[in-house]
Write a protein that binds this DNA or RNA. Structure first.
Lengths: 215, 215
DNA sequence: AGCAAGTTTGCAATGCATGCAACTTTTGCT
DNA sequence: AGCAAAAGTTGCATGCATTGCAAACTTGCT
């Protein structure tokens, strides 16, 4: 199967890089543990630093804002989306690239799904985190809007691509809710997720056609 | 024309209430001035308090989070939307109520439009404010989603109403951008705003029908 | 070993947010 | 008017996140 790592050159990491990566992962892991135990607001940077055995300053070094401790992979996931949207071939629509991205990033083993569920429970129990997440999705909306605008030959700031981006991210939100509400095995979760995605794309496609007919 | 005040009983405010209201408005006004002059992050609560001639503690009293100083009316506007959606008559769809709300709340005189433009410039020049705004729109999305779910006989957490809510708010976002980008007179701004809204509703309507046909 | 570059850390300062208690003003009642 | 309760304002103190800066420490390389 195609994954992100297929396209990324794997440099042999030096000791320095490996250590840095390990520190980063340790901090993120213990932070998630603590958030799950006591809640996000109730956990201080200092406590995270203590359990990760680093200085508080180091935590802030790796994660300039506290919220980033929860959304540790959103950045790379969205980078990947951007790459797929921008480097898609001429016969591939934005919708195709988007769907392929979702297929590639969907949690597919139990461990990954468990981590996702843990993150989602933390996020959904804290308003600041939900707000922060909405801020993150803004970027994805814009990426999608830009790609859709290209497909449709519309200006980037046109209403239609923006609505498509927003509706798409609403679908991904619904998908995230599913991840936590249900207690499904990974395969079943994937199936339902793709069902949601296809439903969203049908909606969007019909919306676009409806608007083109009216114009 | 119908406006919010038509349906709200105007109690004769006592001195206490009037004073409170005046203090609140003074704080909000000077805060907006300062934000426009120096920027949001660059202005401290203390400076706002000084110019408003109150204690810093009082500012935090009226506006528990700094961001609220910019979004002073969003709360009541969304209250009004909620009221309109929930108290609509049987023959009025969610879309009807929504459109009526937009017509009622659109800035229609120069002074109001100027204030809106000032707010929007401040918001768009600061990332924290944009994020905060996205958090606020979550509520509106949910109100709309709930009303649309009722109209369509779907569960509240169904994908379709959620996408409709998201797409609708994307349209309002685009509308807000228009308010600042252009230098239009109020009447022209209103006209373009309604054009956008109708375009959004065409998109959404077609999307819903497309999905119903496929189901 | 020893130097240069890159990391981690401690320290200090700033600013937002909040609980609490003291203080002032307004209100309602006699 | 006079007074007591209620409501609003303020000062004080604390906790926490975030950031700049410089010192201390590690690693990579010669």
């Amino acid at each position: 199967m195609e994954t992100a790592s297929d396209t990324v050159r794997e440099e042999p990491l030096g000791l320095r890089e490996r250590k840095k990566l390990r520190t980063r992962e340790t901090i993120a892991r213990v932070a998630l543990e603590l958030f799950a135990e006591r809640g996000f607001q109730e956990t201080t940077i200092r406590e995270i630093a203590e359990r990760a055995d680093v200085a508080p300053r180091t935590v802030s070094m790796y994660f300039p804002v506290k919220e980033e401790l929860v959304f540790t992979d959103h950045g790379v996931l969205f980078d990947e989306l951007e790459r797929r949207l921008e480097s898609r071939s001429a016969d591939e629509t934005a919708a195709d690239a988007l769907r392929a991205w979702i297929v590639a990033v969907l949690a597919d083993d139990q461990a990954e799904l468990d981590k996702t569920r843990c993150q989602r429970q933390i996020i959904e129990s804290d308003h600041a985190l939900r707000t922060y997440e909405r801020g993150l999705t803004e970027r994805a909306e814009q990426l999608i809007a830009a790609a859709v605008a290209t497909d449709l030959g519309l200006p980037t700031d046109d209403l239609v691509p923006r609505m498509v981006g927003a509706a798409t991210m609403a679908a991904l939100d619904a998908l995230a809710d599913d991840a936590v509400d249900e207690d499904l095995p990974p395969a079943e979760y994937r199936r339902r997720a793709l069902e949601l995605v296809d439903q969203a794309m049908t909606f969007i496609g019909a919306g676009i056609r409806g608007l083109q007919g009216a114009a």
